[in-house]
């Protein structure tokens, strides 16, 4: 398998305060690579720097230092101008955590979906666009006529998250960064959403990077897990390696603190 994303010594340092400058290291010289077609999870608690890392890969936050290379191109140095950026986002896109704030409340679902055509180089006529949007919505189990003309607040959180994934089915990127895509969704709907990501890989061959605090979720869905703590990746391995044989003390503590369904701490 070939490497499609390579991250080297990536760091993000925030400076706060005006008189007395204090530095906050959100991401501390992180290096890793992602192979084509794999599902990889970046697991960490709040403040671990996982979301900042994701945003830098999505080219939404500029890193303080380090290199992110996608298909051999340094995304912060080699991409210039609108068409390069559109090429990048056509190939690398994201799904966010909050299905409520990820939609402009004044737009209809159709507007939300159609906007992604900005990324397309090919000129499509109105009918083709409509057909592609409908196909994408059907892929995630939505009925196009029921959602296309709705506004986001008329849909449930689960449906909105499906729309967000339908957008990915429409764009068909090579790499998807999914930042806590199920954490605000009810338990009984969560598996359905996760299945959609598996489907994405099966049908389009998408490489998926999950950003999550939930080790349980990472355990099921990933080929490989990276554990992030205080801005650093402290451990990396297959799900079984991480869960059954954690090397780092933090990972061990984290696994101990996860409540299990079939055992109790107090009995």
């Amino acid at each position: 398998m070939s490497t499609i994303l390579e991250v080297k010594n990536l760091a993000k340092i925030y400076e706060i305060g005006y008189i007395r400058k204090r530095q906050i290291v959100a991401v501390d010289k992180v290096s890793f690579s992602v192979k084509k077609g794999e599902i990889i999870s970046l697991v960490g608690e709040s403040g671990s720097g996982k979301t900042t890392t994701a945003r830098m890969i999505l080219r939404l936050i500029k890193p303080t230092s380090g290199v992110i290379k996608f298909m051999g191109r340094d995304i912060w140095r080699d991409l210039r101008g609108g068409s390069d950026l559109r090429w990048y986002w056509r190939n690398v896109n994201g799904v966010f955590q909050d299905p409520f704030s990820s939609f402009n409340p004044t737009h209809r679902i159709r507007d939300f979906m159609y906007r992604a055509f900005n990324l397309f180089n090919e000129k499509l006529d109105r009918d083709t666009k409509e057909r592609l949007v409908r196909e994408a919505l059907q892929m995630v189990g939505l009925i196009p006529d029921e959602v296309l003309n709705r506004r986001p607040f008329e849909l449930s959180g689960g449906m909105r998250q499906r729309v967000m994934i339908a957008r990915i089915f429409l764009i068909r990127p090579m790499l998807v960064i999914a930042d806590e895509p199920t954490s605000m969704i009810d338990a009984t709907l969560r598996l359905g959403i996760l299945r959609l990501f598996s489907k994405l890989r099966e049908e389009i061959g998408t490489t998926i990077m999950f950003i999550t605090h939930d080790m349980g979720l990472a355990y099921y869905i990933s080929d490989r897990i990276m554990v992030m703590y205080r801005g650093k990746i402290i451990e990396e391995g297959t799900p079984d390696e991480i869960v059954n044989n954690p090397k780092h003390e933090y990972t061990r503590n984290l696994l101990d603190s996860i409540p299990k369904l079939y055992t109790s701490w107090f009995k």
Binding site: W89, S101, S102
Partner: peptide, 17 residues
């Protein structure tokens, strides 16, 4: 600051848009 602006950027929306 909203997430939906980040979504718009990821959809290739220009600043004017």
């Amino acid at each position: 600051q909203s997430e939906f602006i980040k979504m718009a950027i990821l959809s290739g929306a220009s600043r004017v848009s």
